[in-house]
Design a protein around this nucleic acid. Structure first.
Length: 939
RNA sequence: GCCCAAGUGGCGGAAUAGGUAGACGCACAGGACUUAAAAUCCUGCGGGUGUAAUAACCCGUGCCGGUUCAAGUCCGGCCUUGGGCACCA
């Protein structure tokens, strides 16, 4: 088989005959729109991962076409981007030259692989005829106030000379290149995607997408429901709002924190603190994002000297600034509840701010007639030895810490010290933390009474001054004093009160879940949900706050200080106003430059095109915007343009969109979960709201292909070039069919899979086996062959269903089983041979076209109709089922399918090995699951 | 730390309304064809005890426990790997 010759022949045939041209206006058949994530045409051509997803959609498309669907299967290029620009900087050539050369290479390679794209619908985001409409959409966003020119802190990457959007920054470094990114205030174009947060969140519900991707989008949007609470600044007319999800803990708010950038800081700082505050603000502004997150261990901050008034109790509480409060989230200000937030706790400890507990954990089981009392649990820690002091009561109560009842007129602390001394003899300990009060219910066996206690926890440490004296214990105090490490406590301290107390000792401020409210006046006794509801009602009634939804999602930074992108179609007039470039002047085409290099100061290369930049509009002078749009602009709507790629009047005809959208199957990598896949949903939702497109959600079903790893199990790439595979080399050596077949057989589409050269050879062997069967073996016959009938119908069924659900590896294994069976036969009926070619065709279009023709067919197999199976021919009349005794397989029997339960039982019991295992035992029952298994239970 | 996904032979992977674990392929071993090799075709192939060979038995789907006549599949608790988020109030 000469794969090269065959492949070239059919590529030419399909092109000349327009085999895969979509008649977009033919609404008579059901439609199927399959979309691949279009590639960035890099200089190196396709990598091993491209053919995987592309083959997957191609298989489904080819099957759907044969099943009578009108299939739309387009391809294009995401052709704006940095590599082309860097090439232009180096060579002085226009980036378009480089881009077009690469597109030509990509297109050639894609054709070589046999994908059934309708190339007449090809688009390229850097074509002016395409980006005309990208600019047009931008204008609509601007008109609706969704594209905004604002002064705000943005991600500035010095090395790349541009600002970046949040999804392009990973751990404080640029996604591309890994260069440091800092926060910098710049006047920038942003898209107000948070306005669409709710729609983007709700829209996910009805999408057939991977759960993990939906989850990532949900987290990225980050909806939280809470309240906005107004705090007045004592002695001034100023006030500020805080966002909180736990307004029920307001009684425990003992200070407030503003972000260092908060606008109120200058106004309310008292004169004596001004210097220190200014110094701290400066320190924070110089920190990069990376430093700011890395240095999150030790809390820092400065007191403003000003006080806020807690609206629930009129108490004056200090106001600080600290960089643990982010300017960009919520209102940039918080109320701090150190008792129930670890960060606030750390800060309060460091600055000696009071801690008020307002939530109380309830442990144990509630009973009637409980006796109430107050008590303590004391934990004593030896830091040097890393051991904790416990009392081992053995069978009387297990391992516990020191406990005791608070006497009348005694404070909790002195009770704790007294109990420690009485029970263990230790004195002069250092109190590390007072732990939250726990409301505990229990039953005391020795007193036969139910108790309900308010237990205060204490965490003490032994110091050099600590002393131990002899103890004088009562007779009923039968315990051993044991010093044990942490893991022994975690395993052995079973009592819920003591275990919880220990947890709080190690995690101060961690009590932030549900609990019963205390110290909270009108909220006392309520749980979290009730208390939040009541507090919001109270705040709203008094005009001090209201219910508020907040999102983590931020503005989409929409400008890049680069050349190779869509020009933003606006003019900044000398009087400071902004004018849009009129629709009739679109596309606003990129000017040619002598020098494409960026500047370190944040100026776009376009500033050098002075003739282009300086314009007069309506007799007024102005300058064009010189930043360009990000790469994610053009890819946010390309799926619409495929439907009507040559339309000069509209981005796409509404009637066509109505018929063809949404995309039925979208395949691409999971790395676009919060970039492209969120941005395109936002644009499409916006265009829907504007009545430009007929459906809000663009992608009905989404599937992520996994990564093709090197044979070492590690991602292919620069690090391990010796393990990287160039798909074109595989095509040269084994043919495109083999590459497609192998990548589909490797494993589930969605999984990451290591490359294996032997696997490629194995795939080629199978295709050779098929070829030989049709060409060299004289088995083809016009007779029928009953031996193959069942497997033939089964194969059609399995392959059809597996293609539909994208389980290509198991479809292939079924085809192998079929071919193995044919090899064992003398005669291969012609109709089966033809139908098998149809089943294999979506994966291996070349070899199947060739064999189809050699079997005497004129037209392309792509136009043949998909085979159908006969369910009645699949049913077995005899099957083998297992026989178990007490759940262990002891035999298997062959039975007629319609055999009665009684007969199956008899047959099972009549088997030698089964007899052996039930001999002398009593049969308890016999379970017969029709056509599956028999299980005999004996005693 | 929080959220999500996944752990099955030497390897890639099959099998989930709970019902004979290891389909199919790779690798490996043996055989046929050949002067020979390659290619091709056929057979075997989870680990162990056992047998001349069969038979038969035991163990086995990351670990521990549970539910069930029956668990890779369901439940509880861990461990490991991958991905996402991370001072988000």
């Amino acid at each position: 088989m000469n794969t090269k010759e065959i492949e070239e022949k059919w590529i030419k045939y399909w092109e000349e005959n327009e085999t895969f041209k979509t008649d977009i206006n033919d609404f008579s058949k059901p439609k199927f729109y399959a979309l691949d994530m279009f590639p960035y045409p890099s200089g190196v051509g396709l990598h091993a991962g491209h053919p995987e997803g592309y083959t997957a959609t191609d298989i489904v498309c080819r099957m759907k076409k044969m099943q009578g669907y009108n299939v739309l299967h387009p391809m294009g290029f995401d052709s704006f981007g940095l590599p082309a620009e860097q090439y232009a900087i180096k060579t002085g050539n226009h980036p378009a030259k480089f881009t077009n050369e690469n597109i030509a290479t990509f297109k050639h390679q894609l054709k070589t692989l046999g994908f059934s794209y309708d190339w007449q619908r090809e688009i390229s985001t850097s074509d002016a005829s395409y980006y005309k409409w990208t600019q047009w959409i931008f204008k609509r966003l601007y008109e609706k106030g969704l594209a905004k020119y604002v002064d705000m802190p943005v991600n500035w990457c010095e090395e790349l000379g541009t600002v970046l959007s949040n999804d392009e920054v990973i751990n404080g470094k640029s996604e591309r290149g890994g260069y440091p990114v800092v926060r910098k205030n710049m006047k920038q174009w942003v898209i107000d995607i948070p306005k669409y947060a709710e729609k983007l969140l709700n829209g996910l519900d009805n999408l057939d997408w991977p759960l993990s991707t939906k989850e990532i989008q949900k987290n990225w949007i980050g909806k939280s429901i809470g309240a906005l609470v107004t705090f007045k600044v004592a002695g001034t007319k100023e006030e500020f709002k805080v966002f909180t999800t736990r307004c029920d803990t307001l009684f425990g708010a003992t200070y407030c924190v503003l972000s260092p950038e908060h606008e109120l800081v200058e106004k309310i700082t008292v004169p004596s603190q001004k210097e220190e505050v200014a110094k701290y603000q400066k320190e924070c502004s110089l920190k990069s994002d990376l430093e700011r997150t890395e240095l999150n261990k030790e809390k820092t901050g400065v007191f403003l000297g000003a006080y806020a008034i807690n609206p629930v109790n009129q108490k004056e509480i200090p106001i600080y600034i600290s960089d643990y409060v982010l300017a960009s989230y919520g209102t940039g200000a918080i109320m701090a509840v150190p008792a129930h937030d670890e960060r606030d706790y750390d800060f309060a400890q460091k600055f000696n701010i009071p801690i008020i507990q307002v939530l109380e954990e309830v442990t144990g089981e509630v009973h009637e007639n409980e006796t109430k009392k107050n008590s303590i649990v004391a934990i004593v820690y030896d830091e040097e030895k890393d051991l904790y002091l416990t009392l081992n009561w053995h069978e009387l109560g297990g391992r516990l810490f020191i406990g005791g009842t608070i006497k009348e007129n005694e404070s909790a602390t002195s009770c704790a010290l007294r109990e420690i001394k009485e029970e263990t003899g230790w004195e002069n300990l250092e109190l590390v933390h007072t732990l939250p009060i726990i409301n505990h219910h229990y039953y005391a066996y020795n007193k036969d009474k139910y108790f309900n206690i308010e237990s205060t926890g204490f965490f003490f440490k032994i110091t050099k001054n600590s002393i131990k004296s002899e103890t004088n214990l009562d007779d009923d105090e039968k315990f051993d004093i044991e010093w044990v490490p942490k893991d022994v406590i975690e395993n052995e301290v079973k009592d819920s009160l003591h275990a919880k107390t220990f947890y709080y000792a190690l995690n101060p401020g961690a009590m932030e879940g549900d609990g019963s409210h205390i110290n909270s006046e009108f909220l006392n006794g309520l749980n979290k949900e009730e208390a939040i509801k009541k507090m919001i009602e109270w705040l709203e009634e008094k005009g001090l706050g209201k219910k508020q939804v907040n999102y983590r999602l931020r503005e989409w930074i929409f400008a890049r200080q680069r050349y190779w992108g869509e020009p933003i179609p606006v003019v900044h007039m000398d009087d400071g106003s902004i004018k849009l470039v009129p629709d009739e002047d679109l596309p606003l085409v990129l000017p040619e430059l002598e020098d494409y290099s960026p500047s370190k100061t944040g100026a776009s290369p376009l500033e050098k095109a002075t003739n282009w930049v300086n314009v007069t509009v309506d007799g007024q002078k102005g300058k064009r915007e010189t930043s360009t749009m990000p790469g994610s602009a053009g890819s946010s709507w390309y799926f619409l343009r495929y439907i009507d790629p040559h339309n000069d009047e509209k981005l796409a005809d509404y009637k066509l969109l109505e018929h063809w959208m949404p995309v039925d199957l979208y395949v691409g990598g999971p790395e676009h979960a919060v970039g492209h896949l969120l941005y395109s949903r936002m644009w499409n939702n916006f265009l829907y709201d504007e009545g430009i497109v007929p459906y809000a959600e663009p992608f009905k079903k989404l599937v992520h292909q996994g990564m093709i790893l090197g044979s070492n199990g590690i991602k292919m790439g620069k690090r391990y070039p010796e393990y990287s595979v160039n798909p074109m080399d595989i095509v040269d050596q084994y043919g495109a069919d083999t590459l497609r077949f192998y990548e589909m057989f490797m494993g589930p589409l969605q999984a990451d899979k290591p490359w294996n050269d032997n696997g490629v050879v194995g795939s080629k062997k199978f295709l050779d086996r098929v070829w030989n069967l049709y060409i060299n073996e004289n088995k083809l016959t016009d007779n029928d062959n009953k031996n193959l009938e069942k497997i033939y119908h089964k194969t059609i069924k399995k392959v059809t269903n597996d293609y539909e659900t994208l389980n290509f590896n198991t479809a292939i294994s079924q085809m192998m089983i079929f071919i193995n069976a044919v090899y064992k036969e003398k005669e291969y009926p012609r109709y089966m041979a033809l139908d098998f070619l149809k089943l294999l065709n979506p994966i291996c279009p070349f070899i199947t076209e060739e064999l189809w023709q050699r079997l005497g067919n004129d037209a392309s197999i792509a136009n043949a109709s998909w085979p159908v199976w006969d369910e009645s021919k699949i049913v077995d009349d005899q099957i083998e089922i297992g026989v178990q005794v007490n759940g262990k397989l002891r035999a298997s029997i062959t039975i007629d399918v319609d055999l009665s339960e009684e007969e199956i039982k008899n047959k099972a019991l009549d088997t030698d090995n089964v007899k052996k295992h039930i001999e002398g035992k009593e049969i308890v029952k016999i379970i017969v699951i029709k056509n599956k298994i028999v299980n005999i239970v004996v005693k």
